[in-house]
Amino acid sequence: MDKLYAMEDAQRILQIAIAQETDSGELSHQQLLEIAEELNISPMALQTAEQEWRIMKGKAEDHRLFQRQRLQRLQHQVIRYGIIITFLVVIDFLTPGGTFLGYLGFSLYVALFWGLGLSLKAWRTFQTSGERYERDLNKWRRKRSMQQTLNGVVNRFLGST
């Protein structure tokens, strides 16, 4: 009696077998065509799958770059927050007089309100799904595409003169 495998299980088994068979961990296009032929996969289906894979890989790279930029922006804002709030607290301690909270006056209010805004921004940064995330990602993609187009035009203009 033949063993039956779920499609995902079969894909994983084949992935492991192919990885073990190739020394460098990479396959040439010819090897990929040969494997597809042995599995009765048409060259057209393989080409379509390869195009789909390239699109998915590009989207994953976009997500990774977008998230890295968001995290860097948040990190810069947190550092700026820390420096400015520290400066304001020092000013509060150096000024004469105090409030019911000791020597912390206006710096406490600034820290609380700015900190609230910063925490909301952090929550938004770490949320990597949903309608808002997709809208921000698409906006980032458009901006990046415009920058790349503009850079190409400038490079062509400067290169041709």
Rank of each mutant, 00 (worst) to 15 (best):
H76P: 00
F126C: 00
Y133S: 06
S119K: 14
I83F: 13
H76Y: 04
R142S: 07
T128D: 02
L88S: 07
E131F: 03
L120R: 10
R135L: 03
T125R: 09
F106H: 04
V90D: 08
K139H: 09
T128H: 08
Q148R: 04
W114P: 12
L88W: 08
T86E: 07
W140H: 15
F93T: 04
F126E: 05
L108R: 02
G98K: 15
L118T: 06
T128R: 03
N138L: 12
N138T: 03
K143Q: 12
Y103Q: 02
L118A: 07
I83K: 12
Y103N: 14
F106A: 09
Q77C: 01
A111P: 01
L120K: 12
R124D: 13
Y81M: 09
Q75A: 05
L112E: 02
T128S: 07
R135K: 13
F93R: 11
G98A: 09
F106T: 02
Q127N: 11
Q75R: 07
S129H: 10
R141V: 03
S145R: 10
T99S: 12
Q75V: 00
M146V: 12
L88C: 06
L104I: 11
I84A: 13
L137K: 10
G115F: 03
I79Y: 10
E131G: 00
I79A: 14
R135Y: 11
V89M: 11
G115Y: 05
L112W: 12
F93E: 02
L112N: 04
Q148N: 05
F113V: 13
H76K: 10
L116N: 08
G115A: 03
L104N: 03
L104C: 02
F126S: 01
D136N: 09
E134P: 01
Q75P: 00
I83V: 15
Q148S: 03
R141W: 00
G105M: 06
T125L: 11
R124N: 07
Q147F: 14
Y81W: 12
